[in-house]
């Protein structure tokens, strides 16, 4: 009986629980029985050389990799807040309300700043009526949280595509906040940005910790060190080592991890 209780408790503390996840692109197997636990409210970084499957793992959590069509197959399970998102009864629109995503290349929609921030909000709460002033409040709160409000407040009707890349990426985070996702996935969110913008983004990501569970893929090991609490090192479709960030970087247990963080390959 106590075993069940323990399992329930640990599951409640986990935002994401990946179990025995294998994934194929056609005949190519990208993930091999991956297990990964992500604690609620924490920032977990996924690192590893190109092609190690870290983006594939990330994209399995909101199932955005299924856009590629039916040649993507997966076995195993991915639980988000206790619900297996790979189940057949899962509505993708509902899942993606809970699991937001920030992409490598800032991808604001070709709409105004205002419509971008409220896009998800309007999708998911279409049955409720919001007055313009309520929408304004929601938008302002989101833009303030990503430290973008002062930059755009004078012209909220401008096209989001005309903003700087840094502002665009902040906007892409801001538009997730009004629907209050449990998890935010970030796929190399700063790789298109210059060092100053990267620093600003890392600062912002660090601020969001606690309110949101963040899983972030990064090519940049220094970034994982600076801006995450836990780090999982992946290689050839497997999670090699997953520990607290400082422990993983200071005293890696596996030889592959040590070699990678010392820059011997990748």
């Amino acid at each position: 009986m106590w075993r069940v209780d323990l399992a329930d408790r640990s599951r409640a503390e986990l935002a994401i629980q990946v179990q025995k996840l294998s994934l194929w692109y056609g005949n190519f197997q990208a993930l091999f029985e991956v297990d990964l636990d992500v604690k609620r409210g924490s920032i977990t970084a996924l690192i590893g050389p190109s092609g190690c499957g870290k983006s594939t793992l990330l994209r399995s959590v909101n199932r955005i990799n299924e856009r590629l069509g039916s040649y993507v197959r997966a076995t195993g399970s991915v639980h988000v807040l206790g619900h297996n998102v790979l189940g057949e009864d899962v509505e993708l629109a509902r899942l993606r309300r809970q699991v937001g995503m920030v992409f490598q290349r800032p991808n604001p929609l070709p709409l105004s700043v205002r419509d971008n921030v409220l896009f998800g909000h309007r999708l998911h709460r279409a049955d409720e009526k919001f007055s313009k002033s309520q929408e304004d409040e929601i938008m302002e709160a989101a833009l303030r949280q990503v430290l973008l409000w002062d930059e755009v407040k004078d012209d909220l009707g401008q096209r989001a595509i005309g903003l700087s890349l840094e502002a665009q990426q902040k906007l892409c985070i801001a538009r997730l906040l009004p629907v209050k996702p449990a998890v935010i996935l970030m796929d190399e969110p700063t790789s298109a940005l210059d060092p100053q913008a990267t620093e600003a983004l890392e600062h912002l990501i660090w601020e969001l910790r606690g309110d949101y569970t963040i899983l972030i893929v990064t090519h940049n090991m220094a970034q994982a060190r600076r801006a995450s609490e836990e780090t999982a090192f992946m290689l050839l479709g497997r999670v090699v080592e997953h520990r607290r960030t400082d422990a993983l970087f200071l005293t890696p247990r596996k030889q592959e991890t040590a070699d990678y963080i010392e820059g011997r390959y990748g």
Binding site: N62, N107, L111, C172, L176, V179
Partner: peptide, 21 residues
């Protein structure tokens, strides 16, 4: 295609992606 991907990742259905984006 990035526009479609962005909208889908925000939970838009296929029709919402087409009509709104």
């Amino acid at each position: 295609d990035g526009y479609r991907e962005a909208a889908e990742a925000m939970g838009a259905t296929k029709w919402q992606v087409i009509s709104k984006v």
